[in-house]
Simulated assay, not measured.
Amino acid sequence: MVTEYKAIYIPAIKQGRYDVVFEGKVVVNNSYSPFSDTARHLLSQGLKGKLVLYDQRGVPCLLGGIEKAATQIVYESQESSPRFVTYHPHPHSKKDKTK
């Protein structure tokens, strides 16, 4: 069985914020959690499978399943290092970073 990977690229736009390029188009803007935000976007478009994230140099730096990544977000605080936690949309936010 051949596994198909969907490739995303993240050019840094400013410290800790990224735009995400998928199939030549920016699909997520100004994200601090580009892998998870992109997974949610791709899942909303009906795409499933594996996702690989490449940095601006073209180096693969993260691999995971779209369905699982869509349920996660990166959390960081002064007491803890960055880690994935369960994603919960802000109840008062209607803004969506995906196009």
Score class of each variant (00 low, 15 high):
13 I>S: 06
75 Y>L: 04
21 V>P: 02
10 I>E: 10
93 S>D: 13
33 S>F: 09
64 G>W: 11
81 S>F: 13
54 Y>I: 07
24 G>V: 04
38 T>V: 03
45 Q>W: 07
46 G>I: 04
92 H>W: 11
33 S>D: 15
22 F>D: 02
25 K>V: 03
50 K>V: 08
9 Y>R: 10
93 S>R: 10
65 G>M: 12
19 D>R: 03
83 R>Q: 14
70 A>S: 14
52 V>W: 03
32 Y>V: 04
18 Y>H: 12
12 A>T: 14
2 V>K: 13
82 P>V: 01
83 R>N: 09
8 I>S: 02
79 E>S: 10
35 F>H: 04
72 Q>A: 01
60 P>C: 05
2 V>I: 15
32 Y>W: 10
74 V>Y: 06
2 V>S: 12
14 K>I: 03
6 K>Q: 11
96 D>V: 12
99 K>G: 02
65 G>Q: 13
84 F>H: 09
67 E>I: 03
41 H>A: 01
25 K>P: 03
36 S>L: 06
6 K>N: 06
5 Y>V: 14
87 Y>Q: 02
45 Q>I: 01
61 C>G: 01
37 D>I: 11
20 V>G: 01
11 P>S: 04
98 T>V: 05
52 V>I: 14
2 V>Y: 15
79 E>M: 10
38 T>E: 11
91 P>T: 05
63 L>N: 07
67 E>N: 08
65 G>W: 13
92 H>C: 10
38 T>G: 05
4 E>C: 05
7 A>H: 15
42 L>H: 06
40 R>Y: 10
16 G>T: 04
81 S>D: 14
24 G>W: 15
13 I>Q: 12
42 L>W: 12
59 V>W: 10
21 V>F: 05
23 E>W: 08
75 Y>T: 01
89 P>W: 04
63 L>F: 14
77 S>M: 11
57 R>P: 00
92 H>M: 09
44 S>Y: 08
52 V>D: 01
1 M>F: 07
93 S>P: 04
77 S>T: 09
34 P>W: 08
76 E>I: 09
60 P>G: 00
3 T>H: 10
26 V>K: 13
55 D>S: 06
87 Y>R: 05
1 M>C: 03
4 E>D: 11
28 V>S: 01
79 E>Q: 13
39 A>S: 05
53 L>R: 06
34 P>D: 00
54 Y>R: 01
13 I>L: 08
24 G>T: 04
75 Y>H: 08
43 L>Y: 10
63 L>I: 15
82 P>W: 04
15 Q>R: 15
48 K>I: 09
92 H>D: 14
78 Q>I: 04
92 H>Y: 14
23 E>I: 00
26 V>R: 12
59 V>M: 12
86 T>I: 11
98 T>W: 13
83 R>D: 02
26 V>F: 08
65 G>H: 08
69 A>C: 05
62 L>V: 10
32 Y>I: 02
64 G>D: 05
89 P>L: 03
31 S>H: 11
73 I>S: 03
94 K>G: 02
86 T>F: 06
87 Y>N: 03
85 V>G: 03
9 Y>P: 00
24 G>I: 09
96 D>C: 10
32 Y>S: 10
11 P>G: 01
92 H>S: 07
38 T>M: 07
